[in-house]
């Protein structure tokens, strides 16, 4: 009878070099009904109790050692087989560019509005909306634009037939609606569609979008306005962008300012996009005119505020290099799918 230790070594040696079929044979040879170890165990009946105990446990131990080794070898062979198969399965990855399903797109104007909303929300602004059909009071009078003012020219405003109503020419009526419904402090932006009755060309279209902003509270100053507007421009266009505030005129703000940003294409040197000035107009703003506060019965001694307005098309066209506003409203998929 062979020494059990030798049997194990012999078996392990065989397992080392075996393939799947050989493993089955080895299993039968050692562990099968007539296997070497089974035979040893069977033969124990004629031995002393001490021998039974000693050899029996050694043989059982050997069985499990060999069994474990066979299983682990099997596992390894399976892995090696799959690895080998995998090495043969090389696909041409370039073909994955083609897929029967195209991706969707969001309209660039809506994207810009949402981006603006996100920045102003982070600056503590709420978002409100207002009606597109307005009265002269909301669109003009309440905003300190008297009847004789050039902005009231009928040719710029769409009036509705048979009713005393018009399509808002700016989002500024939103200021009035918000102030009528709420008491200060107010900190809100009003994005929306606006309308101008003018012939369309590459930079003009009858329908476009603005985002209005309004802050009213005690002790709101021009320095606060500068802070929020600068913050917005840096967050929206980049922290290294040059900008300037220059005095301007709007009926509903005083003092008024226009904010220019350094042309991002020529870095201020002057190019076609900035009409060689090096600057791009981004928004108009100012301190809310006391007459506007009076029109909503706010105490204009106690409260001050600022307002600003951005042209969404302008910013979008500038940011995306779109040279004709009408492209935005044609909805040609060759255009839309780019965004």
């Amino acid at each position: 009878m062979k020494d059990i230790g030798r049997i194990i070594n012999e078996a392990l040696e065989k397992i080392k070099n075996a393939d799947v079929a050989a493993l089955e044979n080895i299993k039968t040879e050692y562990l099968g009904k007539n296997g070497v170890l089974t035979q040893i165990l069977k033969s124990l009946s004629s031995r002393s109790i001490e021998d039974k105990k000693r050899i029996g446990s050694e043989a059982n131990n050997a069985k499990s050692v060999i069994e474990v080794e066979i299983e682990s070898k099997k596992e390894n062979l399976k892995k090696a087989l799959l690895d080998e198969k995998m090495r043969e399965e090389k696909l041409d990855c370039s073909k994955s560019l083609y897929f029967p399903f195209s991706k969707g797109s969001f309209h660039p104007i809506i994207q810009t509005i949402q981006d603006i909303n996100v920045v102003f929300k982070s600056l503590g602004f709420a978002v409100a909306e207002g009606p597109e059909i307005e009265t002269e009071w909301y669109n003009f009078e309440a905003l300190n634009i008297p009847e004789s003012h050039p902005a009231r020219d009928t040719q710029d405003t769409f009036y509705l037939e048979g009713m005393k109503a018009l399509l808002r020419t700016h989002t500024s009526p939103g200021q009035i609606h918000v102030m009528e419904k709420h008491k200060p402090p107010i900190r809100v932006i009003v994005p929306g569609k606006v309308y101008r009755n003018e012939a369309s060309d590459a930079t003009h279209f009858s329908t476009f979008h603005q985002v209005e902003g309004l802050v009213v509270d005690e002790n709101v100053t021009f320095a606060d306005l500068k802070a929020v507007v600068s913050d917005f421009i840096r967050k929206f266009f980049g922290s290294d962008i040059g900008m300037r505030f220059r005095p301007s005129h709007f009926q509903f703000t005083e003092p008024s300012a226009e904010v220019d940003m350094q042309c991002v294409f020529c870095k201020g040197k002057g190019c076609r996009l900035c009409k060689s000035s090096g600057w791009i107009e981004v928004l108009g703003c100012g301190m809310v005119h006391p007459n506007v506060l009076k029109s909503v019965r706010y105490d204009c001694e106690k409260y001050t505020g600022y307002a600003f307005g951005l042209g969404v098309e302008r910013i979008t066209m500038f940011k995306r290099g779109i040279d004709d506003i009408r492209l935005l409203y044609e909805n040609d998929l060759r255009f839309l799918k780019q965004f």
Binding site: K121, A227, V228, R246, P247, P255, A257
Partner: peptide, 23 residues
Amino acid sequence: ARIKGYDGTPTSKTHADYAYTLN
């Protein structure tokens, strides 16, 4: 403000203490 110039004048710190109102 206009003659003094808008650009050189101070800018206050952005108010961060306003509650963020979710729409």
